[in-house]
C-alpha cells in the first residue's frame, strides 16, 4: 500500500493517457463515417451515392447512331479513336432528347490547344504547335476540320482531296501542318 501511495502520481499520469485515449475514441466515433472500412479503406456508402448520380455521358456508340457523317470524317484521320464526349463534353441529355437539348460547339482555339500545345514530354510524332505562333488566336477549324484535322482535308466536311483518297497522300509539311516545333 505504501508503494501505491508513493507511486500514486504515476497512476495519475497514466490516467491522463487513458483519458486522452478515451477522448480520442469518442471523437473518432463521431468523425469517422459509419460505413468507413466496409469494403476497403474508404467510406462504403460512397458506392451507393455515386451509383445514384444521374448518368451524364452517353458514350460514343450512341452518338455514332445518328452522326454517321462525323464517324466517316473521323475514320479518315488521326482523331478516329478520340471519343466524341472527350471534346464535346457530357451529352447524355442531348442523346435522350436531341430535339430540345442542343449542345454548344466548343471553341476550337481553346480546345485544340489543350492537347496540341508543344511540350517536351510529348512524343515527337504527336502534332504539337505554339498556338499563338501557329494561328494567332484564329479558331483551328478555319483551316482544320476538327473531326479529321489532316492537312489538306476539307475544313467543312473533313473529306480528303481526290488525290489523297486515290492513295497519293502527300506527307504533311510539319511547318504548316503543325508538326513538332
Amino acid at each position: 500500500m505504501k508503494f501505491l501511495k508513493d507511486a500514486g502520481h504515476l497512476f495519475r499520469f497514466a490516467g491522463l493517457f487513458v483519458l486522452a485515449f478515451l477522448i480520442f475514441l469518442v471523437v473518432r466515433g463521431y468523425v469517422v463515417p459509419k460505413t468507413f472500412g466496409e469494403y476497403g479503406h474508404y467510406r462504403g456508402a460512397t458506392i451507393v451515392e455515386i451509383a445514384a448520380r444521374p448518368v451524364k455521358y452517353a458514350g460514343h456508340q450512341v452518338c455514332e447512331n445518328c452522326h454517321t457523317d462525323v464517324v466517316a470524317a473521323k475514320n479518315l484521320g488521326q482523331h478516329a479513336h478520340v471519343n466524341c464526349e472527350a471534346c464535346h463534353g457530357p451529352l447524355a441529355n442531348h442523346a435522350n432528347d436531341p430535339a430540345s437539348v442542343t449542345p454548344a460547339l466548343p471553341d476550337t482555339a481553346v480546345l485544340c490547344a489543350r492537347c496540341h500545345t508543344a511540350s517536351a514530354a510529348k512524343p515527337k510524332n504527336f502534332s504539337q504547335v505554339d498556338p499563338a505562333d501557329h494561328s494567332g488566336g484564329v479558331p483551328c477549324q478555319t483551316c482544320h476540320n476538327p473531326h479529321n484535322p489532316t492537312p489538306g482535308a476539307d475544313p467543312a466536311t473533313g473529306a480528303m482531296p481526290p488525290a489523297a483518297t486515290a492513295g497519293t497522300h502527300a506527307a504533311p509539311d510539319p511547318k504548316t501542318a503543325g508538326g513538332a516545333k
Binding site: K2, K5, D6, A7, G8, H9, R12, F13, L16
Partner: peptide, 10 residues
C-alpha cells in the same frame, strides 16, 4: 496533476 507527494521514496 493533483499530487504533491515529494517524499524521498516517491
Amino acid at each position: 496533476l493533483g499530487s504533491s507527494n515529494i517524499s524521498p521514496r516517491s
